[in-house]
């Protein structure tokens, strides 16, 4: 049997998670480089409903791995179902998106099979027949190429945005679909999840803002937020923040940008004292123009900035506010 790559797509709350297309695109790229066969699996209570949508992509086969026990999601049931399925199928490589759900069950699944996960990858390399996975290290300051030293199956997860989902190739004809029913004993499932909910009503909708001034831990103290607010006001923009600022209660949660906050794409995103951790970047990288002020010339935020100002934000911001105010006053007369 030829080597296969299996992409496990993610469905939640009755919808296919869009990041799944990125993982399929990643799988297609690895298949092209290695010559391995690419297949996909949908896992869930009613996985077959999604299988047809997935089967439209260029894949050799799509499996719908089903059991009523997979609804609602629990790590115990998902790991049990996939262990059964993978043990029977023995793919060489298993790919998944690095979502919260995957983080929750894939280390358990791999451990149960005595295997490893290279997590949160941003790319791959195929060098002299060897497959390497690239991942960020030290919060994006470095990258590393990592290889598997264990037997197959190998598990790798890809960070959101590493591949273009819209580049996932469609197949000439739909891939065949096979439904796989898995048995999961009741006692396997120990957690009892309740309904998913959203915490607070959003008071501000930052997604509509054209200009956002965002503060990070570089702002140092709560009282300094005012300085950033003045700049935001001068620009006619909204104030936002990285997670630690909201965790500390310096700004309300609904002003948090990032994977656990809001995703924004303003005309201008001005990042003050934000290092540029990936969980922040996923929430703002779609901004048309990004200006970053950071005292560390190697801060990862500069990787995605259009304009970089290396310096102390406390020196930079006040004159900038003043200059903006002057310019605005000037343009009105």
């Amino acid at each position: 049997m030829p080597d296969t790559i299996l992409v496990v797509v993610e469905q939640r709350e009755g919808k296919l998670n869009r990041v799944s297309w990125e993982t399929i695109a990643a799988g297609q790229a690895i298949a092209a480089a290695t010559g391995w066969t690419l297949e996909a699996a949908v896992v869930g209570g009613s996985a077959s409903t999604f299988a047809a949508e997935v089967a439209a992509k260029k894949l050799a086969k799509v499996y719908a791995v089903e059991s009523p026990k997979l609804e609602p999601y629990t790590p115990d049931a998902f790991a049990a179902a996939l262990k059964q399925f993978l043990t029977a199928k023995q793919p060489r490589l298993v790919l998944m998106p690095h979502t919260y759900q995957v983080r929750d069950f894939v280390p358990k699944l791999a451990t149960a099979m005595g295997r490893a996960v290279i997590s949160d990858c941003i790319g791959f390399k195929h060098e002299n027949g060897k497959l390497l996975f690239t991942r960020q290290m030290f919060q994006g300051k470095f990258a590393a190429d990592v290889s598997f030293t264990s037997a197959a199956p190998w598990f790798a997860t890809f960070q959101n945005g590493s591949f273009r989902g819209d580049k996932a190739e469609a197949g000439a004809s739909p891939a065949p679909i096979e439904t796989v029913n898995v048995e999961i004993a009741d006692i396997v499932i120990r957690n009892k999840p309740q309904e998913v909910f959203k915490e607070a009503k959003q008071a501000v909708d930052l997604t509509q803002a054209e200009i956002i001034v965002s503060v990070g831990r570089g702002i140092k103290e709560q009282k300094n937020i005012e300085m950033a607010k003045q700049l935001a006001d001068a620009l006619g923009g909204e104030l936002a923040a990285s997670r630690p600022i909201c965790d500390s209660g310096w700004l309300p949660m609904d002003r948090q940008i990032g994977s656990s906050g809001q995703t924004v794409a303003p005309k201008l995103y001005l990042a003050l004292g934000i290092s540029g951790a990936i969980q922040h970047i996923v929430g703002m990288k779609g901004s048309r123009t990004i200006i970053a002020v950071n005292k560390d010339s190697e801060a990862p935020i500069f990787e995605i900035a259009d304009f970089a100002i290396v310096g102390n934000l406390f020196d930079i911001v006040p004159p900038l506010t003043e200059e903006v105010t002057k310019a605005k006053a000037g343009s009105q007369t």
């Binding site: 590393a144 598997f148 990787e303 304009f307 020196d315």
Partner: peptide, 26 residues
């Protein structure tokens, strides 16, 4: 079960313009 083969500074993909000078000039 997995091996870090090499560590390196990631390649920049975006063109970034540096704005320099005194705070007033910036």
């Amino acid at each position: 079960l997995q091996k870090i083969e090499r560590l390196y500074v990631p390649q920049k993909t975006k063109k970034t313009e540096h704005i320099e000078g005194s705070p007033a000039e910036i």
